[in-house]
Protein backbone atom coordinates (compact mmCIF):
# COMPACT_ATOMS: atom_id res chain seq x y z
CA UNK A 1 0.00 0.00 0.00
CA UNK A 2 1.35 3.41 -0.91
CA UNK A 3 1.85 6.22 1.56
CA UNK A 4 -1.11 7.92 -0.06
CA UNK A 5 -4.36 7.32 1.80
CA UNK A 6 -6.49 4.62 0.26
CA UNK A 7 -9.59 6.01 -1.39
CA UNK A 8 -12.82 5.41 0.44
CA UNK A 9 -14.35 2.44 -1.27
CA UNK A 10 -17.78 3.96 -1.08
CA UNK A 11 -16.76 6.96 -3.23
CA UNK A 12 -17.27 6.73 -6.98
CA UNK A 13 -13.95 6.64 -8.78
CA UNK A 14 -13.14 7.74 -12.29
CA UNK A 15 -10.51 5.61 -14.01
CA UNK A 16 -9.09 6.87 -17.29
CA UNK A 17 -6.70 5.09 -19.61
CA UNK A 18 -4.97 6.81 -22.49
CA UNK A 19 -2.99 4.75 -24.98
CA UNK A 20 -0.68 6.36 -27.54
CA UNK A 21 2.02 5.17 -29.89
CA UNK A 22 2.00 1.65 -31.25
CA UNK A 23 2.83 0.61 -34.81
CA UNK A 24 -0.28 2.35 -36.10
CA UNK A 25 0.20 5.46 -33.97
CA UNK A 26 -3.54 5.56 -33.27
CA UNK A 27 -4.46 6.96 -29.85
CA UNK A 28 -7.29 5.54 -27.72
CA UNK A 29 -8.75 7.03 -24.59
CA UNK A 30 -11.46 5.56 -22.40
CA UNK A 31 -12.74 5.90 -18.88
CA UNK A 32 -14.81 3.98 -16.42
CA UNK A 33 -16.81 5.59 -13.64
CA UNK A 34 -17.23 3.14 -10.83
CA UNK A 35 -20.19 5.04 -9.43
CA UNK A 36 -23.28 2.83 -9.34
CA UNK A 37 -21.42 -0.22 -10.61
CA UNK A 38 -22.00 -3.49 -8.82
CA UNK A 39 -18.33 -4.34 -9.29
CA UNK A 40 -17.07 -0.95 -8.07
CA UNK A 41 -15.01 -2.46 -5.24
CA UNK A 42 -13.27 -4.79 -7.66
CA UNK A 43 -12.43 -1.90 -10.02
CA UNK A 44 -11.11 0.19 -7.17
CA UNK A 45 -8.93 -2.59 -5.84
CA UNK A 46 -7.54 -3.18 -9.33
CA UNK A 47 -6.88 0.54 -9.84
CA UNK A 48 -5.03 0.83 -6.55
CA UNK A 49 -2.93 -2.17 -7.42
CA UNK A 50 -2.14 -0.72 -10.87
CA UNK A 51 -0.98 2.57 -9.37
CA UNK A 52 1.34 0.89 -6.94
CA UNK A 53 4.96 1.08 -8.12
CA UNK A 54 3.94 3.08 -11.18
CA UNK A 55 5.94 6.05 -12.44
CA UNK A 56 4.92 9.69 -12.28
CA UNK A 57 6.77 10.48 -15.50
CA UNK A 58 6.48 8.73 -18.89
CA UNK A 59 9.09 5.99 -19.47
CA UNK A 60 11.04 5.96 -22.74
CA UNK A 61 9.36 2.77 -23.92
CA UNK A 62 10.42 0.75 -26.96
CA UNK A 63 10.00 1.39 -30.70
CA UNK A 64 6.36 0.91 -31.69
CA UNK A 65 5.43 -0.06 -28.14
CA UNK A 66 2.21 1.33 -26.66
CA UNK A 67 2.53 4.12 -24.08
CA UNK A 68 -0.11 4.44 -21.38
CA UNK A 69 -1.28 7.11 -18.99
CA UNK A 70 -3.56 5.87 -16.21
CA UNK A 71 -5.51 8.44 -14.23
CA UNK A 72 -7.31 7.39 -11.07
CA UNK A 73 -9.00 10.24 -9.28
CA UNK A 74 -6.46 13.07 -9.30
CA UNK A 75 -3.35 10.99 -9.81
CA UNK A 76 -1.85 10.14 -13.22
CA UNK A 77 0.83 7.51 -13.69
CA UNK A 78 2.66 6.28 -16.78
CA UNK A 79 3.80 2.94 -18.13
CA UNK A 80 4.75 1.38 -21.45
CA UNK A 81 4.76 -2.03 -23.14
CA UNK A 82 6.15 -4.52 -22.51
CA UNK A 83 7.02 -3.54 -18.93
CA UNK A 84 3.60 -3.55 -17.32
CA UNK A 85 2.64 -5.13 -14.04
CA UNK A 86 -0.14 -7.69 -14.17
CA UNK A 87 -2.58 -5.24 -12.54
CA UNK A 88 -1.68 -2.49 -15.01
CA UNK A 89 -2.19 -4.83 -17.95
CA UNK A 90 -5.52 -6.06 -16.63
CA UNK A 91 -6.77 -2.56 -15.83
CA UNK A 92 -5.70 -1.15 -19.20
CA UNK A 93 -7.37 -3.90 -21.20
CA UNK A 94 -10.56 -3.72 -19.12
CA UNK A 95 -10.90 0.06 -19.36
CA UNK A 96 -10.10 0.17 -23.08
CA UNK A 97 -12.63 -2.61 -23.70
CA UNK A 98 -15.39 -1.57 -21.37
CA UNK A 99 -14.88 2.15 -21.17
CA UNK A 100 -17.16 4.51 -23.01
Amino acid sequence: MSARAAPDRQDPMRIQVSRTGGFAGIARRHEVDTGGRADAAEWQALAEEALRSARDTPPTGVPDGFRYAITVGDRTVYCADPDLTGAQRTLISRVLKEGA
Binding site: G22, F23, A24, V62, P63, D64, G65, F66, D81, P82, S93
Partner: peptide, 15 residues
Amino acid sequence: GEEYNNAFFDGEQMV
Protein backbone atom coordinates in the same frame (compact mmCIF):
# COMPACT_ATOMS: atom_id res chain seq x y z
CA GLY B 1 -1.03 -11.08 -25.59
CA GLU B 2 -4.72 -11.51 -26.19
CA GLU B 3 -6.22 -9.88 -29.27
CA TYR B 4 -3.16 -7.66 -29.13
CA ASN B 5 -3.31 -4.89 -31.74
CA ASN B 6 0.36 -4.19 -32.12
CA ALA B 7 3.88 -5.27 -33.03
CA PHE B 8 7.04 -3.80 -31.55
CA PHE B 9 10.80 -4.17 -31.18
CA ASP B 10 11.88 -4.41 -27.54
CA GLY B 11 15.54 -3.69 -28.16
CA GLU B 12 16.43 -7.35 -28.54
CA GLN B 13 13.66 -9.01 -30.46
CA MET B 14 10.50 -8.56 -32.51
CA VAL B 15 7.09 -9.11 -30.95
